[in-house]
Design a protein around this nucleic acid. Structure first.
Ligand SMILES: NC(=O)c1ccc[n+]([C@@H]2O[C@H](COP(=O)([O-])OP(=O)(O)OC[C@H]3O[C@@H](n4cnc5c(N)ncnc54)[C@H](O)[C@@H]3O)[C@@H](O)[C@H]2O)c1
Ligand SMILES: NC(=O)c1ccc[n+]([C@@H]2O[C@H](COP(=O)([O-])OP(=O)(O)OC[C@H]3O[C@@H](n4cnc5c(N)ncnc54)[C@H](O)[C@@H]3O)[C@@H](O)[C@H]2O)c1
Lengths: 207, 207
DNA sequence: TAGGTAATGTGATATTTATCACAATATACT
DNA sequence: AGTATATTGTGATAAATATCACATTACCTA
């Protein structure tokens, strides 16, 4: 069992709980979460059961406690520093995104060869790629966002792996060669668009 | 059977074939594609079988033919106009992305209330949201990218649906209420990051 | 043109994932 | 206190997805 779907759902539950907590809701139920995020209540309970999360029969779940448990399971109970590779279109969008500030993820630095010619002051430090090893020696960051061109993605990945980074989001559209003890989540936006197109074709191929 | 995974893989195959074709490769094999994108050759053949794609025993596949077949199945054999909702951080990044130009997807227009105060000339027309119905009456676009704040995502979705849009990518982090005959692909970047964090926790929760 | 072989194509099987049905139980009500 | 009921928790079942094993066949070589 790889649990990819389970983990994704846990993260969704966490987001829902976060919102409930922000609205000062104190108790909730599987059924409530279900209507919030469109996942069947029975699936939610089954997931909780699998990860050892216990509620209160008839009383549902205490929002703060459940949120805390979910964060613990996901590893979000502490600040997570992340570095960004490639301060281009996508990289800039990610650094400017306010949503991350509410969670525990912090993009602490970016690396881009265009560092010298940046027009405006970026909200985080941007360094030349050559300084990656030194930076990681001083700041043992374990997670990276790859928003670099396809051509350099594997090389950059290898260098980061060499220097201790183990968790990656890869926005490039190449499939990386990844050692056993690293984890890469490929987010291919072209592909996401194409699946939408398939499902909205007038004449689906009957299979 | 929902085929979500199958369709995602078909799209990956298509991308691989596109690259082979760009490199003027004429014939290929399941095994070659496999090393390209890291999916087992047997899975590739099974997928082909399922979607009625036939190769040549011993001779593998003709690259151009296979590419054409995959495009047909995915509905990518014609230009697909797409509109963008929200010309903010993410929306700008998407419109500036060069990769889409190589495929058949075209972002033809964006809608954003900030249209009057844009600092630089955007590469596509940006209209005020009020003009959505009129635009869609004149341009029956069927696909949209939602890159709007969470608060307005459902309202914008409803309006687009009313005006005939049926395929969506939703970058907001809310779960939309979606009629049967529409398809929404939720791409939640926060969530994608969080799954990476889970898989790189030192002490995984044993289950 | 016959035999060897590299590939495809697919039924059978295994694994993973989701749903269902219902027993267990804490709370609310009288 | 005793009963009704809302809600959890989970084994059993179903559905979806992936892998395997191997029969088939087109090409190549001699
Ligand atoms: N922008 C999008 O909407 C979009 C959509 C789909 C896929 N992608 C993929 O995401 C990736 C980034 O896309 P983008 O639009 O931001 O591209 P971009 O060209 O705008 O940005 C890439 C950045 O990486 C930098 N870079 C180059 N070599 C580098 C190196 N060795 N180390 C660090 N940085 C380096 C470049 O200077 C540039 O600033 C690409 O792989 C692209 O295929 C982007
Ligand atoms: N940027 C990221 O890296 C990132 C990461 C994760 C999630 N998201 C999500 O993606 C969405 C967009 O993020 P962003 O960073 O681009 O936000 P943003 O605020 O930069 O852009 C949103 C844009 O939508 C426009 N808008 C507001 N109301 C609108 C309406 N009714 N019709 C059309 N446009 C409207 C705003 O004027 C703004 O330009 C958000 O839901 C956000 O939660 C973004």
């Amino acid at each position: 069992m790889h649990f990819k779907n389970h983990v994704t759902r846990l993260s969704q539950y966490k987001a829902a709980l976060q919102r409930l907590d922000n609205n000062n809701v104190e108790r909730t139920h599987a059924e409530t979460i279900s209507t919030y995020i469109g996942i069947p209540a029975t699936q939610i309970r089954k997931d909780f059961s699998l990860f050892g999360i216990r509620g209160n029969k008839r009383g549902g779940y205490n929002v703060k406690d459940l949120l805390e448990e979910l964060k613990n399971i996901l590893g979000l109970n502490r600040d997570i520093p992340v570095i960004l590779l490639g301060y281009g279109n996508l990289g800039k969008a990610l650094t400017r995104y306010q949503g991350f500030h509410e969670g525990c993820v912090r993009i602490v630095a970016a690396f881009d060869p265009g560092v010298g010619v940046l027009s405006s002051q970026p909200p985080i430090p941007v360094y030349p790629p050559a300084s990656i090893p030194k930076f990681l020696k001083n700041n043992p960051v374990k997670h990276a966002i790859l928003a670099v061109p396809n051509e350099v993605a594997q090389a950059i990945f290898d260098e980061l792996y060499e220097n201790g980074v183990r968790g990656f989001i890869n926005f490039s559209t190449v499939s990386l060669n990844v050692p056993e003890d690293a984890y890469v989540n490929n987010v291919d936006l072209e592909l996401e668009l194409e699946t939408v197109i398939y499902y909205t074709k007038e004449s689906k191929n009957k299979v």
